[in-house]
Design a protein around this nucleic acid. Structure first.
Lengths: 336, 336
DNA sequence: CTGTTAGCGCCTTCAA
DNA sequence: TTGAAGGCGCTAACAG
């Protein structure tokens, strides 16, 4: 790896000059510029971004923390963020937080130690207070899928409660009155919000939430399968299952089929997120759209604007969910 | 952010001593050690890894290039690599190459400029020569899913040709003789290999490959749908479709259903990769297993061993595919 | 066992 | 418009 010093020698100029032509921030005589560029070319010089970062205290890189790297949801999120930044010549460093407080903090510390100019955080285990402290330490970051009041202007959120409400209302409007609910881990904000929305819809239709019809899953497929089986066996009158995400809905689909339920004739199933595989299922999953892509891009825009002072399109922080009708929800069967 | 200098002042020792206790590589008197640790604690000191990296020429980070960040395949790969390295206290920097030569090279350059200790590359567009040059420049890297002879000891590959062979043989063994093939982009090594395997199986059973029964897709769902439709309409005698990956198989499933084919009674469909959604489909997809997880972990092990001199389990570079029987393949229907 | 002192490769004043 | 020189925060000899 050639260094800036070798380039300067070859070009017969000072090292500062090379830096200038590369950073295009100070006028340089065209002739000198060409000499330098030629030397750069000849040596295949590539600035060492670690040194750049140390010297300038800027790294042109953005750190991202997500719970998992796999899974359709985060894949999409990461991909859209990366795309937006690549266009802007910024780079992205990714760390997985695994929904664990220590790992999330580690990841954040790691990204800070890498001199990231800003962070995008999809964290679930660290406390609100921790995040507020982070802000007070002047760390630049944007929160995704989480609202913390003192950080209101850097939270990109989905109206999860409304989503939960819409999902259940959709089911209710199809005439269902015996509705099971499979939630995510209730300590997670989004799971809690979605469930609240569910309750609100029930109440609006004059129904009581019942413990019998609630199962707390973990957002993974298997728990959807288990939950569906338990709910349907405990209460065979259930005609619809609302699931707090698509993975669990896919699991519920499997369980329902194994229990001999005809879909959607005997049983309707509703998902949430509209992840990319949700139309592979059979029947294709009716679900609530989570505009991950848009939200990731918006997080990127926010940073481009606030950290790099770039002009960007209007910023939007709250996104609205909407029902995607496909084939897994049908009218409630006539009462026997 | 406190610096090592402030820590040394507070602890009343030299800056070098602080470095020593932090890096635990030189003996330090217990008493001093504790003083330093106390200072570190009090200041909430966090070493600046950019500076560390510049000074030591080591970064404890590994760069990874994959074509896409989303998609079930790469998500799994990244996740497993990240896990393995996290255990070892190393960190991972990810870049997307988008199967584009320039972007792949950019990504590699970026990772090099970040002082990565090693790279894991899943690249498709750069030439073999480029990779060989990279080796000659002493860049440490491991290739995934690609075999380049001069780099034989740093290639972690799946025997794609054998996989293609197994897929088609599986179909042939079910009695099918009219078989359509939907390939990936033929310029990609794996697509080419899988197709070669297909041909080999056909030949072994005394069949001629026919252009009529070949469609070149792009590994995405839509092309599977299109391809299936075209093949089935051109040649209604086809009783089985072998697809070069699961996404396309999912698309083919959709097309087949829309064409009124009963699965697997009228038509069998075979996938490849066994990605995580392949059992969500209906019927559940019969496919060829690609042990992504194991391969990612192995790439990590290789680096841990060769770059960081760690002791690791035995290294394996070639992985073997195997058929995963599910429900989308059945016996060939009797000839009309 | 500990302190001193060069750098690592680059950016950025300050002068010229 | 250009060069010289001082760091950025840390590691790694080299002394002591």
């Amino acid at each position: 790896m050639a260094t800036i010093y070798e380039v300067s020698k070859l070009a017969g100029v000072s090292l500062a000059t090379v830096s200038r032509v590369l950073n295009k921030n100070t006028p340089v005589r065209e002739e000198t510029r060409l000499k330098v560029l030629a030397a750069v070319e000849k040596l295949g010089y590539q600035p060492n971004s670690v040194a750049q970062s140390l010297a300038s205290n800027r790294s042109n890189s953005i750190g991202i923390v997500v719970p998992e790297l796999n899974g359709p949801f985060f894949g999409t999120l990461l991909s859209d963020i990366e795309n937006r930044f690549r266009q802007a010549g910024k780079h992205v460093i990714i760390a997985a937080g695994h929904s664990d407080e220590k790992l999330e903090k580690d990841s954040i510390a790691f990204l800070q130690s890498r001199n990231c100019d800003a962070l995008i955080l999809h964290v679930e285990a660290v406390s609100d207070d921790y995040l507020v402290e982070l802000m007070q330490k002047k760390v630049r970051f944007v929160l995704i899928n989480r609202f913390v009041a003192p950080l209101y202007d850097r939270c990109i959120t989905l109206n999860n409660q409304h989503g939960g409400y819409l999902a259940t209302r959709h089911i209710l409007e199809h005439g269902h009155r015996h509705i099971g609910y499979i939630s995510g881990p209730m300590w997670k904000h989004d799971a809690d919000q979605r469930y609240k929305g569910h309750i609100r819809a029930l109440t609006e239709f004059g129904l009581e939430p019942s413990e019998q019809r609630f199962y707390e899953g973990d957002y993974h497929e298997k728990s959807g399968e288990t939950g569906a089986r338990i709910l349907l066996e405990n209460d065979p009158s259930i005609t619809a299952l609302v699931c707090a995400n698509d993975e669990m809905a896919a699991g519920a689909l499997t369980a329902a089929r194994e229990l001999g339920r005809e879909l959607p004739a005997d049983l309707s199933i509703m998902g949430f997120d509209n992840v990319n595989f949700s139309h592979y299922t059979h029947p294709k999953l009716t679900t609530v759209n989570y505009p991950v892509g848009g939200m990731g891009e918006m997080a990127a825009q926010l940073i481009l604007k606030r950290v790099y002072d770039q002009k960007v399109d209007a910023i939007q922080t709250v996104f609205e969910p909407r029902v995607i009708e496909r084939c897994s929800v049908g009218p409630a069967p006539d009462e026997a």
